[in-house]
């Protein structure tokens, strides 16, 4: 068990090292000269003084050989220093920390809503395949999967913010500004979670131990609660983790539309502005966090499934 854990940690370390190298190199490979871009954006002039460019390059340390730059960057990154943003001049680490906090709040709320609806709904649909609830659920799943967020988000703003006036239309000021974006963001994962729960639950309800539980006098409802849900929600744990990792940097559309200062928007702006340290730091942080989340999900999966816990996986 301990050996397995250590092996796992070693692999994680190597993965992170590889990711850091890619994260470091990508802004350079993408072409263009960041120094020129920064200066152009500051002086709003296409004819930038070459001497100024050179001075800036030295100032930012971009004149040194790449391996040296990588070594310095990695060493500092390990100590929690990701450098300074080219555009704002503020420390990358603290910018990312703040944006991640926002994105994690948004993603967890959205996925929480999704799971809270999907698990009961998927279970209900599975107990009566082909029934009214099941048909309605299937329709809902298809609708939610097919509805693009860039359409749904403005519609939500129109109805709930402008017409009804219940919720703020954008920004990140109070808890109420979380509601609308979280709801819009929750629909797609909700559809997938429902689908997964339904499919798993259909299998689980056919399992011999369900018949055995019924033979002891449990009602269908009690059987589902005691013996169905735990077995049926195992795959949702994995899906939840995958979505969480995906939403951390991937809810760009929502964050831009609702003017939410999250990770997606931070990276989007870093790309637009060729903010090299921000891109490197952001990429590494998101990947590291995804790996962490998936590791936690694996541990949770094992905790929920005693057969895996002692190495008896079927």
């Amino acid at each position: 068990m301990l050996a397995r854990l250590l092996q796992r940690l070693l692999i994680l370390g190597l993965m992170l090292l590889g990711v850091s190298l890619i994260a470091f190199l990508v802004p350079f490979v993408s072409g263009g000269d960041p120094v020129r871009t920064i200066l152009m954006s500051r002086v709003r002039d296409l004819a930038v003084d070459p001497a100024a460019v050179e001075a800036m390059r030295v100032h930012l340390g971009l004149d040194r050989p790449l391996p040296v730059q990588y070594g310095t960057w990695l060493w500092q990154a390990l100590q929690g220093d990701l450098g300074y943003s080219f555009t704002s001049g503020r420390p990358v680490a603290s910018e990312i920390g703040r944006a991640l906090g926002v994105s994690v709040t948004l993603a967890l709320t959205a996925l929480g809503i999704a799971a809270a609806v999907a698990i009961p709904l998927g279970t209900l649909a599975a107990t009566r395949p082909g029934g009214t609830v099941d048909s309605a659920t299937t329709l809902m799943i298809q609708t939610f999967v097919a509805t693009p967020e860039y359409w749904l988000a403005p519609m939500g703003i129109l109805v709930f913010a402008l017409y009804l006036g219940w919720l703020p239309s954008a920004g990140w000021t109070s808890w109420s500004s979380l509601v609308l974006p979280a709801m819009v963001l929750s629909l797609r994962p909700m559809a997938y979670f429902t689908q997964v729960t339904r499919a798993t639950m259909m299998d689980v309800l056919q399992a011999p131990y369900i018949t055995a539980a019924r033979s002891r006098g449990l009602s269908m409802r009690q059987t589902v609660m005691r013996h169905g849900l735990r077995n049926g929600s195992l795959p949702v744990v994995t899906f939840f983790a995958l979505w969480l990792a995906g939403l951390l940097g991937g809810s760009v559309v929502i964050e831009v539309i609702f003017a939410i200062p999250g990770m997606g928007r931070l990276l989007y702006e870093a790309v637009v502005n060729r903010d090299v340290p921000m891109l490197q730091g952001g990429f590494v942080s998101i990947v590291a966090l995804s790996i962490l989340i998936n590791t936690i999900a694996d541990i949770l999966y094992v905790a929920l499934n005693p057969a895996v816990r002692s190495g008896h996986a079927h």
Binding site: P208, Y209, T211, G217, L218, S219, R226, P306
Partner: peptide, 23 residues
């Protein structure tokens, strides 16, 4: 439901598969 388990009980062919693996 009251009859099942209360007045009539059952043993099955594959005892291990008849037990909930997570309970």
């Amino acid at each position: 439901n009251r009859l099942r388990g209360g007045r009539m009980a059952m043993l099955f062919q594959q005892p291990q598969a008849m037990l909930d693996p997570t309970s």
